[in-house]
Each structure stands twice: as C-alpha cells, then as structure tokens.
Amino acid sequence: MSIAIRPATGGHVAAIDALLRRAFPAPDEAMLVQRLCIDGDMVLTLVADDEESGALAGVIVYSRMTVEIGGKSIGAVALAPLAVDAGQRGQGVAEALVRASLVQLADAGAMLVFVLGDPAYYERFGFSADWARGFASPYAGDYLMALPLQGGAMPCGERGAATHARAFAQLGGNS
C-alpha cells in the first residue's frame, strides 16, 4: 500500500467524520473534531490517502492549548484524535501521520505537544509522562504525555496550567 500524507481540505470533511465514527466505539471523537473546527481551535489536520484507491486511510488532528511555564504562555498543541481505517491498520499509517505532523508543528514554531494516550504507543515518538508532570490539567496522570519540539528543550520555569481547547470538556456528553 502506498499512502500520501497531506493537509486536510474541505473535501475531506465527510470522509474524516465517517472514519472517526467507524474507528471509535462512540461518536465522541467525531463530535470533538466538529467542535474544534466550529470553535476555530484546530491547528493542523493531516490525512493519509491510499494512493491506489483514493480512500481515506487515516487522520490526525491537533488543536490549540493554553499552556504556561514560568508565568509565560508557550506555543502548545494537543494531539487528538488519531485514527486509521480498520482495513489499513498495522501498515504504518498512524506512524507516518504522527511523524509528518510533528515535523510540520516544529517547523511552525510549536514548543510542546500533549497527547492523552497509551504510553506503549506514543513513547516511540518521544512523548513522555515525565514531560507532562507538574502541569495543572484534569487529564494529569500516566496517560497524559508531552513532547518538546524545538530541539527537545523544555522551556525553563515552574509549570502552570495546561488547558485543552473548550471542546475537550464536552467529550462524553459533558458540557
């Protein structure tokens, strides 16, 4: 299989929504992406297209966060969701999406990326719960991980709040 990673366009909206609804047991992630888009909080959305069939193989979405270190706001984003079509799993689609997106975010000047996920998966990209420790977040714990992008350097200072976009508070029907 050959995939092409590219920025999502308006033409991908329906396919992204359908993929998210198939990939997760509840519509929460699809609704999250809709809310992030409506609220203007999406920072980067990349898709993986199967070049042979033209079908959407996967998607990765990043949204803006408000993060403070040493009393100063730093450029930070949240990775969520990451989804791959069931028929394309195990073929490196998710890894290609993560790696391509981290390069783009670093090039755009983002300082820090947070993800709430399985450490066994995300640690391969350099994410660590240690980088996220000390930030005030309702998601704090072993599954909240962070990755400093600019040469792996974490800005100095006391860690303050790490606040996800408003749409995250509405996951699971909470509003």
Results as ranks from 00 to 15, higher is better:
residue 106 A to H: 06
residue 57 A to N: 09
residue 86 A to I: 08
residue 112 L to W: 09
residue 132 A to S: 04
residue 103 V to Y: 14
residue 54 G to N: 12
residue 145 M to N: 04
residue 74 I to E: 03
residue 37 C to A: 15
residue 45 T to Q: 12
residue 141 G to D: 14
residue 83 A to M: 12
residue 160 G to P: 03
residue 85 D to L: 00
residue 142 D to V: 07
residue 137 S to K: 02
residue 127 F to L: 09
residue 7 P to G: 10
residue 15 A to N: 09
residue 141 G to N: 11
residue 107 D to N: 14
residue 49 D to A: 15
residue 161 A to G: 05
residue 29 E to D: 06
residue 171 L to C: 14
residue 91 Q to L: 14
residue 44 L to A: 03
residue 71 G to L: 03
residue 152 G to C: 05
residue 7 P to M: 09
residue 172 G to H: 05
residue 170 Q to T: 15
residue 98 V to K: 04
residue 118 D to I: 01
residue 131 W to A: 07
residue 25 P to H: 02
residue 2 S to Y: 06
residue 88 Q to C: 11
residue 82 L to Y: 05
residue 130 D to W: 01
residue 164 H to R: 07
residue 70 G to A: 07
residue 41 D to I: 00
residue 4 A to K: 11
residue 22 R to W: 01
residue 124 R to C: 04
residue 4 A to E: 15
residue 127 F to N: 03
residue 98 V to A: 09
residue 129 A to V: 00
residue 147 L to V: 01
residue 99 R to K: 14
residue 175 S to M: 13
residue 81 P to M: 07
residue 71 G to T: 05
residue 139 Y to S: 10
residue 137 S to E: 00
residue 35 R to I: 02
residue 157 G to V: 04
residue 73 S to Q: 11
residue 67 V to L: 02
residue 25 P to R: 01
residue 166 R to W: 07
residue 44 L to Q: 09
residue 27 P to R: 03
residue 32 L to Y: 00
residue 152 G to D: 08
residue 28 D to I: 02
residue 82 L to S: 04
residue 169 A to E: 15
residue 146 A to Q: 06
residue 138 P to V: 00
residue 153 A to W: 05
residue 172 G to M: 01
residue 94 A to H: 00
residue 18 A to G: 07
residue 38 I to M: 14
residue 41 D to Y: 05
residue 76 A to V: 01
residue 153 A to I: 13
residue 49 D to S: 14
residue 53 S to F: 08
residue 68 E to F: 11
residue 70 G to W: 02
residue 129 A to T: 10
residue 54 G to I: 11
residue 54 G to Y: 13
residue 152 G to I: 07
residue 167 A to P: 11
residue 24 F to M: 06
residue 90 G to D: 12
residue 128 S to Y: 09
residue 1 M to A: 13
residue 78 A to C: 04
residue 38 I to E: 15
residue 2 S to E: 14
residue 111 M to V: 15
residue 168 F to V: 13
residue 129 A to F: 02
residue 16 I to A: 03
residue 56 L to T: 10
residue 99 R to T: 15
residue 98 V to H: 07
residue 147 L to G: 06
residue 74 I to H: 02
residue 15 A to K: 05
residue 171 L to G: 13
residue 34 Q to G: 08
residue 69 I to S: 04
residue 74 I to Q: 03
residue 149 L to M: 08
residue 103 V to P: 00
residue 134 G to E: 05
residue 108 A to Y: 10
residue 124 R to H: 11
residue 88 Q to H: 14
residue 100 A to C: 12
residue 46 L to W: 07
residue 145 M to H: 04
residue 91 Q to E: 12
residue 83 A to S: 12
residue 104 Q to K: 15
residue 52 E to G: 14
residue 132 A to R: 01
residue 169 A to H: 08
residue 73 S to R: 13
residue 33 V to E: 07
residue 104 Q to N: 10
residue 25 P to T: 01
residue 117 G to R: 10
residue 90 G to I: 02
residue 156 C to V: 14
residue 51 E to Q: 15
residue 144 L to F: 12
residue 75 G to N: 12
residue 23 A to G: 08
residue 167 A to R: 09
residue 125 F to E: 06
residue 33 V to H: 00
residue 41 D to S: 12
residue 171 L to V: 13
residue 4 A to W: 01
